[in-house]
């Protein structure tokens, strides 16, 4: 089987070297680019399976690189940022990044994100059902089972859960969720989202206070995972 090809775009040589060693050790092919321009042209020629993009680049802002690459590149992009400002992360996600990590991050976390992004990159197709961890969503019959047990969900809870499950591993921003579920008129009504996420957790999480399926990304959004 082919080893997945990852393109790392980062201006810092230490980080590049570290990522190269780490990723190669985990069985990936790795290409490097030190600037945004170089990154875009390498991405165009090698068509990587995944791009690791640092947002603080010397020649172009990471957001610009993201927008330009996204015009023709469909594979996952994982954004690395040293800034703690959530605006930048939300912008990056809105500009087409699939996920983000803030530096400093744990290597284990990085590899987990890469794995999950690559796994989902394989087309889901028009599957009639989604299975994740103990959850099974029958999209035809609109029935959700947790450990085989049928869950009673309201229409909104169901829509929210399906949206999450279709984007497993991906961070969905508050704004995106509000727009998709409630419509563009509800972008300022984040209290609905808070309440529905809390309700959904009560129904699907083992311990709703320590959620493992719908995980909070502080001030950015939520991420749906397989759970443990």
């Amino acid at each position: 089987m082919n080893r997945p090809l990852i393109l790392v775009i980062d201006d810092d040589i230490q980080i590049r070297r570290l990522l190269e060693i780490t990723l190669r050790a985990s069985g990936y092919e790795v290409e490097m680019a030190a600037t945004g321009r170089e990154g875009i042209s390498i991405a165009a020629s090698i068509k990587p399976d995944l791009v690791l993009l640092d947002l603080g680049l010397p020649d172009k802002s990471g957001q610009e690189v993201l927008r330009e690459i996204r015009e023709w590149f469909a594979n996952p992009i994982l954004v690395l940022s040293v800034l703690t400002g959530e605006e930048e992360i939300v912008d990056a996600l809105d500009n087409g990044a699939n996920d983000y990590l803030t530096k400093p991050y744990r290597t284990g976390e990085l590899l987990a994100r890469v794995r999950s992004l690559l796994k989902r990159a394989q087309p889901v197709g028009n599957l009639p059902s989604i299975t994740s961890g103990n959850l099974n969503i029958d999209l035809v019959a609109k029935v959700v089972k947790n450990n085989g047990e049928v869950l009673k969900l309201t229409a909104t809870e169901y829509a929210l859960l399906v949206l999450f499950a279709r984007n497993e591993g991906r961070v969905l921003t508050h704004q995106y969720l509000l727009k998709e579920i409630w419509g563009p008129g509800f972008l300022n009504q984040s209290q609905y989202l808070r309440v529905y996420v809390a309700q959904l957790r009560k129904k699907i999480e083992k311990d709703p206070n320590r959620p493992e399926i719908i995980v909070t990304e502080s001030r950015v959004g939520y991420r749906f995972t397989e759970g443990r």
């Binding site: 984040s190 809390a198 206070n209 320590r210 001030r219």
Partner: peptide, 15 residues
Amino acid sequence: NDWCDINELIYFTVG
């Protein structure tokens, strides 16, 4: 400011 679920925030931070 934005709507914040304090209960969730506390458990999140404790976590």
